[in-house]
Each structure stands twice: as structure tokens, then as C-alpha cells.
Design a protein around this nucleic acid. Structure first.
Lengths: 205, 205
DNA sequence: TCTACAATGTTGTCAACGTCTACATCGCGA
DNA sequence: TCGCGATGTAGACGTTGACAACATTGTAGA
């Protein structure tokens, strides 16, 4: 079965039309299905039906493409967390849990992409990837402010609380992802952690 | 006229003698100094003063070498945590903190190695790298049992508490590592988290 | 002592990759 | 119309992982 090209199917135009987007899409698919190692410029070019040199017109090098892909991931993750918290009612714990759940869900749905986002794909520290935390950082910061204001969150230095909470959720996401934990159990873990931060007992006893 | 001289310093014997260890050592150094991408079989062979095909006698392929390197890391991390908890006095919180501190210290001292341990270096899911957690898992499990026995740890299902604690410490290690946080601040974070689990208020207020 | 063998290292080769350069084709605005 | 910049093509080069054929060495047993 022929690959369903979005534009024209039979004759190939000299110019692709949206090669950049096509390369990123192919990259994400390949990353998900075969891992970073298989995300090669030549392979993406093949998938896009284009010569092996073409990608260089859109991405300086392989690393640049991976960073762009990671950026897409950042945006989607941020959107997911924002949407989750915004559509959740006023209860502080529920919103905190919603944010964490969105994070964990992303980790389970996009393990390879999340890994890419955290490690930068390559190694040339060109991007220390502290960026993963930026969006969640701001969202959580605001959430914590609200929690303190309403008295629903245990007192304490907001900055330090923020770091612990972020670390915990980040850790849960990583744990859940590398243990391939079922979503149900992952959410239970999130619920426990949330309860812990808000002040109640943990462990569901 | 043949030369019956056994060895001379300066002339290279045909057999290296301990090539496997030399390759692993070179791999760890290169990983630390230049990142995973630079850990190439040929480069390691060069560093060991050996031909480019020699490594294949000791490691099936590059991935196998990286996994071996990760295993070395697991062992060292486990030893570090065990040593830290064992040499710390009876107080539960102190021992929990000691374990976490050892973890975080390892993360700060060996960022690239820890990353390799968690991601498996490659991507071919040949090793889901849930191994990182095995040693800490057992150690923490025992610690939690003791904490519950002595009543120093807040009550709750041990399994769930274990997961949360592991996730948190794992998260702190990752956060600290990718944010290149100074050790001092990292330890404060660990102290906060420990206090939180033991039952007191967090945030150092 | 001699010899066959297993372990280890060397050399040569191949395909795939990233990257570079020279060239071809296209669309668009002066 | 025409020319120019953006985009894609084609080929080359050096590096890498992997493999196969061969060389060297220590050693166990005849």
C-alpha cells in the first residue's frame, strides 16, 4: 500500500512544499517506533521521499533537528499540563493532581520523546535541557501560590516546596515510564504524592 | 639473529593483557569528558593502543559495552548507598537522608554515567534499565520496614511509600543533575524531602 | 618436547551515516 | 521578462559499527 502523501500521489514535484514539517513528523514517528538511534537524516529524507541532502536546507545538522523535535515536545507537554489544570475545579489538591497526572500521562504516551527532551538527544551539552522544567515550573509556582493563599497547602518556603514537588512528579514520571507501569497504578502514585504534599497521610491506609 | 628478550617497556606485546578492563576504563573516562556520542569502539581501541577490531573480542557490539559500563555504575551506586546508610547511626530520618544524599552525590559526580544507566545509552529497549532501581529498592524497602517498626516513619502501605520515596529521590537526583545545582542546595532539598516523608513540615519554615 | 587448540589481536572490507560542495529547478517580485 | 533566492539533487569524503579471514600466543595434553 502506497504511502498516502498529503499533496500529490503520482508525480513528485521538485519542491516538497512542507518538507520541514514532514521531516519533524517522520522524526517523531521514527523516534517513537524505533528509538533515537534510528532517527537519521537520511532515513527521514527517505520517508519524506526526498534526496539525502535535502534536510540540510531546514536543519543545520542532526542535533538541530533533534532539538527542534524536543521543543515540539516541550510545547505539547506544557499545553497538556495547562489544559489539565485549567479545566479542573477550584480544589487545590485536585488541580495539583491534575497537573501531575498530565505529566505522567505524557511520560507514558511519549517515553522516547520525553527522554529526548531530558537528555537533549546528543551529548554536546549544547542544550542542558533544563527547559523541561520551565513550563511546569511556572505553572506549579502559580499553583503553589494559590495553595498557600487558600491555606490548602502545607506552609513552607514556596521555592523549596516547588523544587520538591517538581522533583517528585518528575521522578514519578520517570519511574512510571521506565517501569512501564500501568496508567492506573501511576495515577494512584500521583494521588498519594499529592496527598502527601497537601498535608494528609500517604499510602492510602 | 632472533631476539629472545621477553618483554621490553616500549615494545608492544601482541596481547594487551587486560584489554576488557582498559576498554571499560577508557569508556568511562570518555563518557565523562566527552559524552556518550564520543564513546565509539574505534576511539576506545585507539586509547587502549589496539587495533579497531580488537574490542569485538570482548564486547559483542557497542551497545553491549555501554550496558556493561552501566552495570559498573549500578554496582558503584549501590555500594555508595549501602555504605552511606550503614555507617549512619540509628535515627531513621538520618539514614534515609544519608541514602538520598549518597544518591544525589552520585548524580552530581557522574551525570553522564547516571544518564547512561537510566536510558540504556541506546534505544533498542534491550534493557529497560529498571535495574537502576533494584539496589536502592531493596535498601529502601528494609529502611522503611525499620522506620515503621520504630514508629519513626509516618504510617502507610510500605510499597506505595517506597515508590513515592524512590521517585522523589530519583527526581531530586535528576533535577539536581540537569540544573547543575550546587551540592549544598541539593542536600538541603534532600533534607526537606526527608523531613516531609518522616512527617514534619517541609520548606524549612 | 611437540602439537593442536582456544583465546586474543590485526587487517581489510562493506554499508550506512553526517556533512560538504557544486549544480538544478522552482517561484516570485522588480 | 528576467534574475535571484529558496529549495532540492547528486556526488564525494571521512568516520563509524560490523563482519570475515588471518596472525600470534599461551597452554593442555599426547
Amino acid at each position: 500500500m502506497p504511502e498516502p502523501e498529503p499533496y500529490r500521489s503520482g508525480d513528485k514535484p521538485y519542491h516538497h512544499g512542507s518538507l520541514r514539517a514532514a521531516l519533524l513528523a517522520a522524526a517523531e514517528r521514527t523516534l517513537r517506533e524505533q528509538g533515537v538511534e534510528q532517527v537519521t537524516l537520511r532515513e527521514l529524507a527517505r520517508q519524506a521521499g526526498v534526496s539525502h541532502g535535502a534536510p540540510s536546507r531546514h536543519f543545520r545538522d542532526r542535533q538541530a533537528l533533534l532539538e527542534e523535535l524536543a521543543a515540539v515536545g516541550f510545547a505539547r507537554l506544557g499545553d497538556g499540563i495547562t489544559a489539565a489544570t485549567e479545566k479542573t475545579g477550584g480544589d487545590f489538591a485536585a488541580r495539583l493532581r491534575a497537573a501531575a497526572t498530565a505529566y505522567v500521562r505524557f511520560a507514558l504516551d511519549n517515553p522516547a520523546l520525553l527522554e529526548l527532551m531530558m537528555t537533549g538527544g546528543g551529548t554536546d551539552g549544547r542544550e542542558p535541557a533544563a527547559k523541561v522544567y520551565q513550563r511546569p515550573y511556572l505553572i506549579l509556582k502559580e499553583l503553589i501560590r494559590q495553595g498557600h493563599e487558600s491555606g490548602e497547602l502545607r506552609p513552607g518556603d514556596p521555592e523549596r516546596l516547588l523544587l520538591i514537588i517538581m522533583a517528585t512528579f518528575q521522578g514519578i514520571a520517570g519511574l512510571v515510564s521506565s517501569l512501564k507501569m500501568p496508567l492506573e497504578q501511576a495515577e494512584a502514585l500521583v494521588a498519594d504524592a499529592t496527598t502527601l504534599f497537601v498535608g494528609g497521610p500517604a499510602g492510602g491506609s
